[in-house]
Amino acid sequence: MSITRYGADGGVGTGGQHLPFSSAVEAGGWLYVSGQTPMTDGEVVEGGIVEQSRLAIDNCVKIMTDAGYGLEDVVHVKVILTDARYFQSFNKVFKEYFGEHPPARICAVADLVVDVKVEVDVTCYKAP
């Protein structure tokens, strides 16, 4: 089995810092996308939970698409919200993306290392 690392050179985080991890890793038909926040080019995109949720998921989708996976291939999603009051709004956005192919999911409330409202990661599977 081979392992393919996407974005292994590392992305750019807040303040221009180099991120020392791959944006995704693929092995044996599985694609693990690193947690994505509502950032563009290393800068946080301000907005409410709806806007930030869409951008975090869009960032995951871009990485998945670049690796040859689609929303129908998502089997599990992990979500971290910084406030439990965001839960219902996040669910509405989540349904926009995954209503046709709902994956398994965990959603937790915790502080994040970046000043954002949400972080999302996905696990995909496609038979090799």
Rank of each mutant, 00 (worst) to 15 (best):
L31G: 00
H18N: 10
T14H: 07
T37D: 02
G7P: 01
T37N: 15
G10Y: 13
T37K: 06
S2W: 08
G15W: 05
G15L: 05
Y6G: 00
G35L: 00
G13H: 02
D9T: 06
S22E: 04
S2C: 05
G28N: 13
T37F: 05
G29R: 10
A27S: 08
G15V: 06
V12Y: 05
G35D: 02
G35H: 01
G11Q: 05
H18A: 14
S34P: 02
G13T: 04
W30D: 04
Y32G: 03
S23D: 10
S23H: 03
A27T: 05
G28S: 10
Q36G: 02
G28A: 11
S34I: 04
T14I: 14
V12C: 12
T4E: 15
P20Q: 11
G16Y: 13
W30H: 09
Q17S: 11
Y32E: 09
E26N: 04
T14W: 03
E26T: 02
H18G: 09
T14P: 09
A8P: 01
R5A: 14
G35C: 13
G13E: 04
Y6A: 07
G15A: 08
S34W: 05
V33W: 00
Y6Q: 06
V25H: 11
V33Q: 01
G11A: 15
I3D: 08
F21I: 03
G16M: 11
W30V: 04
G13I: 01
A8C: 07
Q36E: 15
L19I: 08
D9E: 15
T37L: 06
L19D: 05
S23V: 09
D9G: 14
D9F: 12
D9H: 13
S22A: 15
F21S: 04
G29C: 12
V12K: 11
A24G: 05
T14G: 12
G29H: 09
G35Y: 01
A8D: 14
